[in-house]
Simulated assay, not measured.
Amino acid sequence: MPADSAERSSGQPIPVVINGATGKMGREVVKAVSQAPDLNLLGVVGRTHIGEDVGEVVGIGPIEVPVTDDLQSLLLMTAQERQLGVMVDFTHPSLVYENIRAAIAYGVRPVVGTTGLSEAQILDLANFADKASMGCLIIPNFAIGMVLLQQAAIQASHYFDHVEIIELHHNQKADAPSGTAIATAALLSNLGKDYNPAAVSEHENIAGVRGGVVGDNIRIHSLRLPGLIAHQEVIFGAPGQVYTLRHDTTDRACYMPGVLLAIRKVLKLKSLVYGLEKIL
């Protein structure tokens, strides 16, 4: 029996460390993990509420897991468990690359929702995970509805030559465009099609008003406003018609089924996988 299967056959809960536990997404992950019978919330890392019971912080009552700011110690503790451990990361683009490398180095499987990694960083992490035969999941968006939107966009691209993407997020999001918008553009670009053939010679009177160009000439427009959570539109146009696909997040709880699925699936992987659609 493979080592992974042998360790999982014990039926003991999967040890989980949550990095970024006091942030908006991290709080939801704490609730979901602590309530899942097959998961064991081993520890949490946050920038605020250090020393406080994270259950009290997120509003579910005491669970005897204090908030710490020492990720390295928690990774070491997780590595010493007999069960294969998982680190869930919802932190900041400036921190996530080193967080993933540290987790892999300790033998802890990363499940990453933090966006902002460059293509070069993802490639480097993929090589690092391959050398360690370590599962790693980087998922720009954990919502099932977003996966369905992306699949619908792929189908629509067979019939429309013009498309642009608008992504809207809360004004505390540090990176733009969103990882989800970039992933959506990449999916469309991978079809080998040239989009948005020019009808006129365009000129921007104000730099950037036409958005950023990615992939095969696909423009992404980013909005940042208080009151928003996470939203995306993929708009296709053709003579006489416009076809709009839109996904709206009204509560971060919508991401939790995807997060829990990723925690369970990453233990079966031996390499880095990018995108929720790859594990559904």
Rank of each mutant, 00 (worst) to 15 (best):
P2E: 10
A6C: 03
E7M: 12
R8I: 08
Q12R: 15
Q12C: 11
I18Q: 07
I18E: 04
G20R: 09
M25C: 04
R27V: 08
K31L: 10
Q35G: 06
Q35V: 04
D38C: 03
L41A: 10
G43E: 02
T48E: 06
T48V: 07
G51T: 05
V54M: 05
V54P: 05
V54Y: 10
V58Y: 03
I60M: 14
I63G: 00
D69Q: 15
D70M: 00
L71W: 00
S73A: 15
L75E: 09
Q80H: 14
Q83S: 13
S94C: 09
Y97G: 05
I100S: 00
G107D: 09
R109Y: 11
L117S: 11
I122W: 13
I122P: 14
I122C: 12
D124P: 09
A126M: 06
A132C: 06
M134G: 00
I138R: 11
I139Y: 00
I139Q: 06
F142L: 07
M146L: 08
V147K: 07
A152D: 03
A153H: 08
Q155L: 15
Q155H: 07
Y159E: 12
H162R: 11
H162F: 10
L168R: 14
Q172C: 08
Q172I: 06
G179Q: 09
I182R: 13
I182A: 01
A183E: 11
T184L: 07
T184W: 02
A185C: 13
A186C: 05
L188K: 03
L188M: 05
K193T: 12
P197R: 02
P197T: 00
P197D: 02
E202R: 00
E202Y: 02
E204W: 01
I206S: 04
V209T: 00
V213W: 01
I218W: 02
S222P: 07
L225G: 08
G227V: 08
I229G: 03
I229R: 11
Q232Y: 04
E233Y: 01
V234D: 00
A238E: 01
P239R: 04
P239A: 02
V242A: 12
Y243C: 12
T244N: 12
L245S: 06
D248F: 05
T249D: 04
C254N: 03
M256N: 05
A262I: 04
R264W: 04
S271A: 11
G275Q: 10
L280T: 15
